[in-house]
Amino acid sequence: MIGILKGMATTMKHALDGETFTVEYPDTAPDVSPRFRGVHKFSQERCIWCRQCENVCPNDTIQIVTDEQRNGEQYNLHIGQCIYCRLCEEVCPVDAILLTQNFEFTADTKDELAYNKEQLKNVPWYKDIDPLESREPDRGAWIGEGEGEIDYQ
């Protein structure tokens, strides 16, 4: 009986202290950590069409189409199929593809989640945070380039 009462006292304590741990999404935008990985952003200006991201992608989410001179024509990414492992960002030598913190996306059909390069370029930052500053990708494991100013506009 004592145990039951102790349990009931505990829940009553929680009921009375008025604290809540849930947030009113979407009114309160949830805080995501600086390293959070969300929908991709792609910069055609930076991309050198080296296809490393396409190769490293574990489940063929990225599709790149080039012409005979290896000039890029299409960059498609199915954000509904993506598993958000961030390997494409990690492998990219020029930071052309990176994962924003934006986790909110909707579509009526699955096909609409296959983004082309224009759609990928227009993916907004989440709360205007550029996640690249907080992530310190260990480029040593990949390639020693890619420093310098980055302009995604």
Partner: peptide, 9 residues
């Protein structure tokens, strides 16, 4: 009431 007991809104 349930929400109050479980710290929700």
């Amino acid at each position: 009431i349930t929400a109050a007991f479980t710290d929700r809104i």
